[in-house]
Design a protein around this nucleic acid. Sequence first.
DNA 1: TCTAAATGGACAAGTAGCTTGTCCATCTGG
DNA 2: CCAGATGGACAAGCTACTTGTCCATTTAGA
Lengths: 146, 146
Amino acid sequence: MDDALALSALVLALSGQLVQEIHTQVSRQGFEGLRPVHGFAFARIAAGDTTTADLAEHLGVTKQAAAQLVGELAGKGYVVRRPHPHDARARLLELTETGRAATRAADRAARAAVAPWRAELGEARFAELVADLARIAPRGPIRPGW
Amino acid sequence: MDDALALSALVLALSGQLVQEIHTQVSRQGFEGLRPVHGFAFARIAAGDTTTADLAEHLGVTKQAAAQLVGELAGKGYVVRRPHPHDARARLLELTETGRAATRAADRAARAAVAPWRAELGEARFAELVADLARIAPRGPIRPGW
DNA sequence: TCTAAATGGACAAGTAGCTTGTCCATCTGG
DNA sequence: CCAGATGGACAAGCTACTTGTCCATTTAGA
């Protein structure tokens, strides 16, 4: 019965640890000035066909906040804004090679953070865990921050 | 192989959903002006024997930020600062009845948020999930925010 | 026991990442 | 063809943090 309460605490603790470890590792690999929220932005931009307004919705922030974030990332050379082929108002976002490198670093960090979990649980239960979580995870926009 | 990457994304998505649902429910039950970080503070204070400095460490923020948070909670009637029995500098934090009521509301919200997961997975796998997460969850201070 | 360093806490000022509000250019649908 | 919706920018303001400083009290070392 109290499993329910325990589970929510566990999920929150794990996600806090994950975020912190990934952020630490990425910083350490020379990608400074990046915050965790940028990872979610990179993921969306890497998916392709992303405008600032799309990004805002995906991140759950205002267009202005997203525009500021994009400006920051552009200034640091992680992102470029290209003209949109079908809409003169919009700008298509693209990752630069530096941006892709940062994404790869984050991926590696995520794998490294998860590796001890796999070791602790063993392959079989680890796979089950991933499958179970996949069944209950929500779709829709990411809501970074709390 | 890519399970590792998927898992971290899943955990982050779940925790984002949890935080948001709990926060929404608690607000809706009349506890306004509370932010998710306050839940972590309440949990620590409820555990007893907590000073502002303890809280700061637990939340991973500066003493000043914790003091401000406590001042806010005290102003809203969720927390009282009592003299510390053995240290004239320190103040012991305690939840008021209102604070405990807010905590109970958050607990209920957490259970409600988790309930569909239990339904989706079934009792057996749900119990396994909780057990597995308990094995891999970190100890130590909570780091709210990302 | 005396004193230097550490600790709990408060006050002040500054900062970063968001918000709301407003505006313009462009696209879309009746 | 025009009214409303949409992508984006500029400006101002808010808020939850930060660093810096200070004081009272406790702790530890000589």
